[in-house]
């Protein structure tokens, strides 16, 4: 049994800095999906996102190995922040328009785990989440930023408020409008919105 599986991120970071590679593997596996999703939602290209995700973790490796890691914050927020900044930098350098690149013509979010498992309901779920991803891109930038930080970077609303220089009430309000807007857009687009499909 792997003894690192139940450890906190902070403990894993300490172990890794002291030379335990298994601890780092645990950290990577624990956070890879959120880091990758954070990047995909910005660059909209899975191949570019794969490269940037590697860059993000390599940057984290160097920071931890050189003793510059600040243990005050959460590891998940820190690594997703690195990923977010790299993705934004990529866009600035490339100065290009968003473009969706899909593997094998499939939906971007093709690795979903839902309760229902019939082929038809799975297809509906995949279509719904793919559409949701597109709708996230249509949100105002401030709302999209809060949504991504909370959902994919595991940042608390207070942490988001501090990071974006607004009050916690403003951060909460932006999140509320983001969720309300997404719901409205989904209903307006006649997207499957069946509570039974998404219940546990």
């Amino acid at each position: 049994m792997n003894t690192t599986t139940q450890m906190s991120d902070s403990a894993l970071v300490s172990l890794y800095i002291s030379g335990n590679e298994n601890a780092f593997e645990q950290l990577v596996n624990r956070h890879k999906n959120k880091v990758f999703t954070t990047i995909v939602l910005i660059v909209k290209d899975t191949y570019t996102a794969e490269d940037l995700m590697q860059d993000a973790f390599i940057k984290a490796i160097h920071t931890m190995k050189s003793g510059r890691y600040n243990e005050e914050g959460k590891f998940s927020s820190w690594i997703c922040r690195i990923a977010h900044n790299l993705a934004i930098d990529f866009f600035r350098k490339e100065k290009r328009s968003p473009m969706i690149t899909l593997e094998d013509g499939s939906n971007v979010f093709n690795t979903l785990a839902f309760a229902a498992d019939s082929a038809e309901s799975l297809q509906i779920q995949e279509d719904t989440v793919a559409r949701l991803r597109e709708l996230i891109q249509t949100l105002p930038q401030t709302q999209r930023e809060v949504l991504m930080m909370r959902h994919y970077a595991d940042m608390s609303f207070q942490e988001i408020a501090d990071a974006t220089g607004v009050s916690i009430n403003t951060a909460l309000g932006r999140m509320r409008y983001a969720l309300i807007n997404l719901r409205k857009k989904m209903l307006n687009g006649n997207i499957a919105y069946d509570k039974n499909i998404y219940s546990e």
């Binding site: 780092f24 990577v28 794969e50 973790f57 979010f109 959902h151």
Partner: peptide
């Protein structure tokens, strides 16, 4: 209820990177 529904949908909208990329990262560290 509406907020919980959207939240669950968003939580499910994660994407998994390739094993090759993950192996590259782990090998680099090693």
């Amino acid at each position: 209820s509406d907020l919980l529904l959207i939240q669950r949908l968003l939580d499910g909208a994660t994407k998994t990177p390739s094993d090759r990329s993950i192996n590259n990262i782990l090998n680099y560290s090693k």
